[in-house]
């Protein structure tokens, strides 16, 4: 999938038409992946979202078009990412709207999330890769094999990354809890006989 980037930036209508025809089915599929019903909760339909994707490409003097670098990614990856981001933004806009008083049928975001209690994970202790692996394993509840496939590494690498990250976190919380609860066992389960 290729397109005449320079011509589109110049405003060549024919090049733009060709680009749209080349990418529109992928855009539709990408949006449908995020909004399977083809409609956002507050009324935007598929056509509106598709149009929003291409408007975004032309906004700010065609900034996204200008900044696309074919050496870094394929057009399909780039346009899919933009399309899904537009769809996610559309869904998020709804979640930020004030909920109607009578929301028996209109509630779409569920009950408001309460602030989590307990310790906050100190991000400065972990590398970005460690944070990502832990997010995928714990928050997304993904299998080690799937995490490995997504990151392009071996499952053993994922286990090792997780182990090191958890060691850092446990050491941090044990140090910060020292003296607060002397009866709390601090041996790892696998160390018990």
């Amino acid at each position: 999938m290729e397109f005449d980037q320079e011509a589109c930036i110049r405003g060549d209508a024919e090049a733009w038409t060709a680009f749209c025809d080349e990418t529109i089915r992928l855009v539709v599929a990408s949006i449908r992946r995020v909004c399977p019903s083809g409609r956002t909760p507050h009324g935007e339909d598929m056509d509106d979202l598709v149009q929003a994707v291409y408007i975004k490409l032309l906004k700010n003097d065609r900034r996204l078009l200008r900044n696309y670098d074919p050496a870094r990614s394929a057009v399909s990856t780039w346009i899919t990412l933009i399309a899904r981001s537009v769809a996610i933004d559309a869904l998020r806009r709804r979640s930020l709207d004030a909920r109607p008083i009578d929301d028996a049928a209109g509630a779409v975001a569920g009950p408001p999330r309460t602030a989590p209690t307990g310790p906050a994970i100190p991000t400065h202790l972990l590398t970005a890769r460690q944070q990502l692996v832990l997010s995928m394993l714990f928050e997304d509840e993904m299998d080690v094999a799937d995490v490995a496939a997504a990151l392009g590494v071996s499952p053993q690498t994922i286990r090792s990354t997780k182990h090191k990250a958890m060691e850092r976190l446990r050491a941090h919380f044990q140090a910060s809890d020292a003296g607060d609860d002397p009866t709390r066992p601090d041996v790892e389960p696998e160390d018990r006989t």
């Binding site: 589109c8 405003g11 060549d12 209508a13 733009w16 038409t17 749209c20 025809d21 529109i24 089915r25 992928l26 855009v27 539709v28 599929a29 990408s30 449908r32 992946r33 995020v34 056509d47 598709v50 149009q51 291409y54 408007i55 032309l58 399909s76 990856t77 899919t80 990412l81 899904r84 981001s85 996610i88 990502l132 997010s135 995928m136 997304d140 993904m142 799937d146 496939a149 997504a150 990151l151 392009g152």
Partner: peptide
């Protein structure tokens, strides 16, 4: 993250045929 993982694990899928109205709307942006 969900988008990135989905694309990494499942790749891209092409969508259905798009009608002339939507194509026209998008073409007219330029």
């Amino acid at each position: 993250r969900s988008v990135a993982v989905d694309l990494r694990l499942h790749g891209f899928t092409d969508g259905p045929t798009v009608g002339p109205d939507l194509r026209g709307r998008v073409h007219a942006l330029m």
